[in-house]
Amino acid sequence: MTPATRPPVRLDLLLTLTRLHREGIAVRMTRTFVPSRQELLAIVRWEKRSARELEQIFEAHGWPGPDLVGEVGAEAAWWIALLCDRQTAFQQGAHRHLLEAVERGDAPARHGAYFTDRLRMHEGVPQPYGTQYLLNASGAITRYPVADPGLLGLRCHRAGLPKVAEARPADLRLMALTRLPRAPTGLPSLR
């Protein structure tokens, strides 16, 4: 569909998604680079609430793509779902909805790549696209291990990602995990 022939955006859903996105950014803007226990609890409360509200949208509409919520709403939905780290079952379902949307052309492949990497990291499996980094307790930033690094450039190209997605500290602060990933099998512990 061209933008001129798209149905009107569902403003109620767009408002929900932008509210959750705004709240997510606010709760992740912690006083220190590594969140305190109190700040972490606030993040987890946001994740639970966001997962509940997004799940209702998925049940009623599937993945909220640009035709339903506009580009801004679609980007917000991806960001919110990606960061609900302690909501494992929700994230797995959201990932399925997202990959279906990518197949239909209703979501960019880069969204699927980031989400796949995030879930692989949670499972303790090396990531295929190299998008995820660890924020260690000391504040140090390290890339989570990548599967078959020799093919990283090709995989990133196919997903519409830069050859090597370098992390900036400001991005990592907002994208930091709220739980430790499982240590990758066959690799040294990251804890």
Rank of each mutant, 00 (worst) to 15 (best):
A109K: 05
H95I: 03
E75W: 06
R104W: 07
T88M: 10
P108G: 03
Q91M: 11
V102A: 09
E100A: 07
M121T: 03
W78G: 05
A113S: 12
L99N: 15
H97Y: 15
R96Q: 13
P126I: 02
E75L: 09
Y133C: 07
E123V: 00
L82D: 14
R104P: 01
E75P: 00
A74S: 13
F90E: 07
P128H: 06
A109G: 04
L99D: 14
L82K: 13
H122P: 00
V102F: 06
L83Q: 15
H95T: 09
D117R: 06
Q127Y: 03
R86A: 11
A109D: 02
A77N: 08
M121I: 04
A74H: 01
H97F: 15
A107E: 01
W79F: 12
G105P: 01
F115I: 03
D117G: 08
D106E: 14
R120T: 01
L99E: 15
R96G: 12
G93T: 08
A113E: 11
C84V: 06
L98W: 12
H122S: 07
L99G: 09
F90W: 10
R96Y: 09
T116Q: 08
P126Y: 01
E123I: 00
E100H: 02
Q132P: 11
G124I: 04
R86L: 13
G112Y: 01
L98I: 12
I80A: 05
A76S: 12
Q127W: 04
E100M: 05
A113K: 03
H122D: 07
V102M: 10
A77P: 07
W79V: 14
R104M: 13
G93N: 11
G124F: 01
Y133P: 01
H122N: 11
A74G: 09
T116M: 06
R110A: 10
A94G: 13
H95Y: 15
Y114F: 15
L98Q: 13
T88G: 10
